[in-house]
Amino acid sequence: MTAPLLDVQHLTVVFDGAPAPVTAVNDVSFQIAPGETLGLVGESGSGKSVTAFAILRLLQRPGRVAGGTVLFEGRDLLALPERDMRAVRGARISLIFQEPATALNPVMRVGDQIAEALTVHGLASGGEAQARAVELLEAVRITDAPRRARDYPHQLSGGMRQRVMIAIALACHPPLVIADEPTTALDVTIQAQVLELLRELKATYNLAVLLITHDFGVVAEMADRVAVMYKGSLVEQGPVRQILRAPAHDYTRNLLASIPGR
């Protein structure tokens, strides 16, 4: 096996509070190889989004990392100075949020928001950044990209907004994208289009993806491997076929059995 791109070891996240601190992520370890998609599955409150936020060091008080390491491209992200961490976020690891309506800046043209990702990281500026923004909109299959780049988020549909989010996430060609419920807010036909797009982009850019979802259907379509999270701990991890066909843990079995029509 090639060296992992992301190597999370014994990650533990605690939320301080009365009467006692709550352990939201408990000794979680997993790896993602370059170009690989890992589906992190669990229900709300299982700790999957907190795990992603801890990796990017975006946890807010009272949450804090209580232990573990997050090795990415050979460096421990948890030990980096904040300045270096800012150079990782967006440029080397980017994040696609669930709710494109609230994650985009409502008073900024979408083209400018994509260009901003490039200028912040010093990869392009001015007209060049704008031109790249239009190219990226084309890459995420938005028709009439030059005109759409001048639109504000409220002028776009939910599916188009999520494409814009993906364009921003891809702007700096990061090797790793964390996608937190990227299609949960979308209608099923739009979800199918966005998943199709993600699959194509993965192949084109050799992207590794940490795909956070509660939907085993999305996992079956997208992931190479699956990690199942329950109450802060990973209860099971393995290749997608193995987990779907022969789940070893009771929780995974129950979760699969809850899906209607199974």
Binding site: V188, A192, D215, G217, A220, E221, R262
Partner: peptide, 18 residues
């Protein structure tokens, strides 16, 4: 038909016919 074909299938080996 389009709506039904858009539902993610739980089997990774089922060919997608979107």
């Amino acid at each position: 038909r389009a709506l039904l074909s858009a539902i993610p299938v739980l089997d990774p080996d089922t060919p997608r016919q979107r």
